[in-house]
Simulated scan of single mutants.
Amino acid sequence: MEGPCNRDIAISVSCVDWVSLFEAMHQIIVRNTEECVRLEAVSVMIVILMRSNAYMEREKFGKATVFESLSQLLRKEAGLRVQRHAVHLLYLLLNCPKLLVMFCSGSNEGGTAAVPVDDDARPQKFIKVLQGLADCVACSGNGIQELTLRRNAITVLAFLASSGKPGFEIFVRSKLYREANFIMLILQVLVSEIDIEETAVCVESPEIFKERTLLIREALILLNRLVSNPAYSVTVLWVLTNSRDMASLTIDIATRLSWEYQRHGHSDCITRQMRESEIVNLARVFRKRVFTYLGHNIS
C-alpha cells in the first residue's frame, strides 16, 4: 500500500524537467575538467536516458552539442572511468532511431532514413566521436577496467555495423589514425590479447581471464557477423585480406584462436567452457570464411 510519502515522491519525479536536468549535467561537463565531477554528471545523464523511451522521448536529449562533448569524454585524456561512462552514454543515444540516423548520415537533424556519407562530408563533431571511440578500442593497459572499456567500445561498433548500410560504411570506411580503420583496430586488439596471454609468466587472475575472454568473444562475434552477412561479407573479407599485412594478421588471429586454450588457471567453469568451446568454434568459422574467400580468389 502506498503511503503519502511515496505519492509525494512520485508526483515530484513526474514534475521533473528531464531535458533541462540533462542539459544542466551537460553544462557541468563542459565547464569542468575534473574527472570525478564529469563522472558524476555523465552518470546522471545515463540514468536520465535509461528512463526515457528510445523511440518516443530520447531524441530530444541528442543535441549536436552533446555529441561535441562526447568526443572529448571518449578521449584517453578524460580518464578511464569517464571513457567507460561516455561509451555507455553514446550507446544509449544511438539506440534512438532518429539519433542513429542523424549520426550515420552526418546531419544535424534526425530523419527517417540515413544516407551514407564520406568522411569529408561528415561534421567534425561526429568524426571526433568516432576517433574517441577508436581511442577506447585501442586503450592501453591490461586491467579489468581497460578490458571492459575495449569490450564495450566494440559492442557500440557492433551495433553501428549491424544498424544498416550507413552504419556499416562508418565501421568499414572511417579513416582513423595512420589510415587505420575499425576492422584493423579490432584485429590489433585481438592479436595483442593473444600475445599477452601466451607470454604471461604467471597465470592471470580469474577476473582478468574472464574479462579478456568476454572481449575476445565480442570481437569474434562481430567479425563473424560481418563475414557471414550476404550484403557485406565480400567487402569485409576484401578489407581483411587486401594487403599482405592485413591478411597475415587475419590468418594469424583465426588460426591461433582456433587452438584449444590450455592455461585456464582458476577460472570458473562458465568462462572455461566459453574459452574451450564457443571462442574456438567462432574462430574456426571465421577462419573457414577467410580461407574460402582466399581460395576463391586464388583459383
Rank of each mutant, 00 (worst) to 15 (best):
S174T: 15
G167Y: 02
L160H: 03
N224H: 07
D195Y: 04
V191Q: 09
F291H: 13
R122N: 07
A64W: 00
H264T: 10
N108A: 13
T155Y: 07
I29C: 14
V19G: 03
R217H: 14
G3F: 08
L294I: 06
C96K: 01
N32I: 07
I251F: 05
G141S: 13
S258I: 06
G110M: 04
S233I: 04
V236I: 10
W18K: 14
T255V: 09
Q27N: 10
I154R: 01
E169V: 08
R122K: 12
G111Y: 01
S174M: 12
F103G: 03
Q131D: 14
R287C: 06
S267Q: 04
Q188T: 09
S12E: 13
R178M: 11
P230R: 15
G132I: 03
A86D: 01
F159R: 12
V19P: 02
K76A: 14
T112W: 12
K128L: 15
N224I: 11
R263A: 07
A78Y: 00
W18R: 10
M25K: 00
I48M: 04
Q27I: 06
S140N: 10
D135R: 05
L21G: 00
M1Y: 04
T33G: 10
E77C: 06
L240Q: 02
D120W: 12
S248Q: 10
A114C: 04
I46T: 07
L39P: 02
T33A: 14
L100G: 01
A41M: 00
Q273H: 13
G141N: 10
G79H: 10
A231Y: 10
Q145H: 09
D118W: 04
R38T: 11
F67N: 04
V19D: 05
S277F: 06
R178F: 07
A86W: 01
K175C: 13
P116L: 09
I29K: 02
R151E: 07
S299E: 13
I196V: 13
K210P: 03
K63E: 06
I170N: 01
N142V: 05
T33H: 14
V203K: 07
R75I: 09
R244I: 07
S299N: 15
G295T: 11
S233D: 08
Y177T: 15
S258A: 08
K175P: 03
Q273I: 11
Y55A: 15
V87M: 03
A153M: 10
L222E: 02
P206L: 05
S205G: 14
N229H: 15
R284Q: 13
H264Q: 14
V101I: 13
M1N: 11
V137N: 03
E169H: 00
T112A: 13
I29W: 00
D135V: 07
R275P: 00
L147H: 02
V13G: 00
V239N: 06
S71L: 10
E35S: 15
M50G: 07
A219T: 08
L226R: 04
L187T: 03
